[in-house]
Design a protein around this nucleic acid. Sequence first.
DNA 1: TTTTAAATAATAATAATTCTTATTTAGGAA
DNA 2: TTCCTAAATAAGAATTATTATTATTTAAAA
Lengths: 146, 146
Amino acid sequence: MDFEAIKAHLAKKGLKATHQRLVVLQCLLMLKNHPSVEQVYEKIRPGNPTISLGTIYKTLETFVEAGIVQRVSTKEGAMKYDANLSRHDHIYSTNTQEIIDFEDEELSKIVENYINKKRIGNFKVNDIRIQIEGEKINPEKDIDII
Amino acid sequence: MDFEAIKAHLAKKGLKATHQRLVVLQCLLMLKNHPSVEQVYEKIRPGNPTISLGTIYKTLETFVEAGIVQRVSTKEGAMKYDANLSRHDHIYSTNTQEIIDFEDEELSKIVENYINKKRIGNFKVNDIRIQIEGEKINPEKDIDII
DNA sequence: TTTTAAATAATAATAATTCTTATTTAGGAA
DNA sequence: TTCCTAAATAAGAATTATTATTATTTAAAA
């Protein structure tokens, strides 16, 4: 999603393409590590010293409502946001406090089909997520998915 | 898990079986709806008017450390706790803000096997959770899983 | 029983988030 | 392009959620 695509997306939702919004979204797309509001703030501040923390809170929630970013489900601390809208899951590393993207179309399909077959009465399923929790063996190195 | 089993469990962890702890755990086992600290507090207070909110915070976190209850992963608001330790997943109803238990051994096994087969390098998997997000058709009625 | 380390109540402190309002600005209209 | 206006922002106050502190109480071992 480039700048023009973002602007178009905002316009479609009747939202103004302010400098603050573009910077916040660009930051989210760059970071990729599901940052908190505070982390976005610290990243952006050097280049935008007058931006307000409240604006970042508001901007991110506006994006959630507009369907441009998603909240990340966690068991602790501050809210985290994710600009990766492709169907994907998360690996939670408890010892390093990282949340890493995990993409596996095949697994997603298997689970989706299973649940659709099962049918849940009086309920409309909108999204299915798999959370893989565990810990990095070597916290310094990246995990690698074979 | 009855009272004596709880006492034994606490003793095994070197924790005192205080009245407050027993009441909090009993409440959690009864409620089953993954309550927040505040919800436990309101539920317990009538019968235990001198109990302190801070004690409930502390008690629940003590239970988490002792492995007696688990935190529930959410995208918003206050922390929620779950005393159901059997392997299970959660259905998140966004329109009613409910979190409902979902047990399906077969699905759990399928996903677990799939991920174990895949192997994630430099990472030790401890837990796999499936989150089903959606909305109740009729918010008044329960969902029913066929 | 007595002792004592652990737990609690009460409350202060901190952290995370939301709200309020005066000022600024994006984007449409003239 | 300039003007207009509704929407957005900055700054900071207020609220909510959680954690820390400390004097007092209590479970459970001696």
